[in-house]
Structures are given as structure tokens and as C-alpha cells.
């Protein structure tokens, strides 16, 4: 399988990456180079094989459903927004999304 320029444009949109028009063609070639190399996986017989989900045989640990203390806990809006490019009263500010 290989990708064409239009597919690359679509994937870039899905990935939220602005790809300039003149980069689409070279990017298509780069991706096809990698995809062609990856395609050798079709030689491997995977009939009846379960896909890998975890390398370690363990159950997902459960904890009590309560607000944690420390850095993963609540009540620290200032820290949560400390690195945001734009904030107002501990809210993230984005361009208008509803007309």
C-alpha cells in the first residue's frame, strides 16, 4: 500500500498539522519510503495470534474513587494553568468555537 498526496493532506488534517502545499509531495515520498519498508510484515504468519496488549502479565490496578492528594489531586487551578499560553481566572482561553 502506498499513499498519495490527497491521503497525506487528509492525514495531516486528522493529525492537526498544518502542512504547506509545497511540503505535501516530499512528505508523500518520505512516508511511502517508510511504508514500503514496513510492508515486509505481510510475510509473517499471524493466523490465530492474539495482538500484544501488555508485556507484563498483570491486572490493571484499581484504587479508591476519591480525590487524591499531591500533584495528581484537586484544588490547584493555579498550577494547572501555570504553563498555558493564555488564561483568564484559571480558565484556558481559546479562540471562539461557537458561532
Amino acid at each position: 500500500m502506498s499513499v498519495d498526496k490527497e491521503t497525506v493532506r487528509k492525514v495531516a488534517k486528522l493529525a492537526r498539522l498544518a502542512v504547506p502545499e509545497d511540503r505535501l509531495e516530499p512528505m508523500t515520498n518520505e512516508l511511502n519510503g517508510i511504508l514500503k519498508w514496513i510492508e515486509q510484515l505481510n510475510e509473517v504468519d499471524v493466523d490465530g495470534v492474539d495482538p500484544m496488549t501488555s508485556t507484563v502479565d498483570m491486572k490493571l490496578p484499581m484504587r479508591e474513587d476519591v480525590v487524591q492528594s499531591g500533584p495528581t489531586g484537586g484544588g490547584q487551578p493555579d498550577k494547572v494553568v501555570a504553563n498555558a499560553p493564555r488564561t483568564e481566572d484559571s480558565f484556558f482561553v481559546v479562540p471562539k468555537v461557537v458561532e
Binding site: 499471524v46 500484544m52 496488549t53
Partner: peptide, 15 residues
């Protein structure tokens, strides 16, 4: 299925 799922199956065989 063609890429990701197949890769995870080959990964299981490598494991």
C-alpha cells in the same frame, strides 16, 4: 487492521 493490529500480532510472536 492492516498495519497496527498486524504489528501487535507480530510483536506477540516476537515476545
Amino acid at each position: 487492521d492492516a498495519y497496527y493490529l498486524r504489528a501487535q500480532k507480530v510483536r506477540k510472536r516476537i515476545f
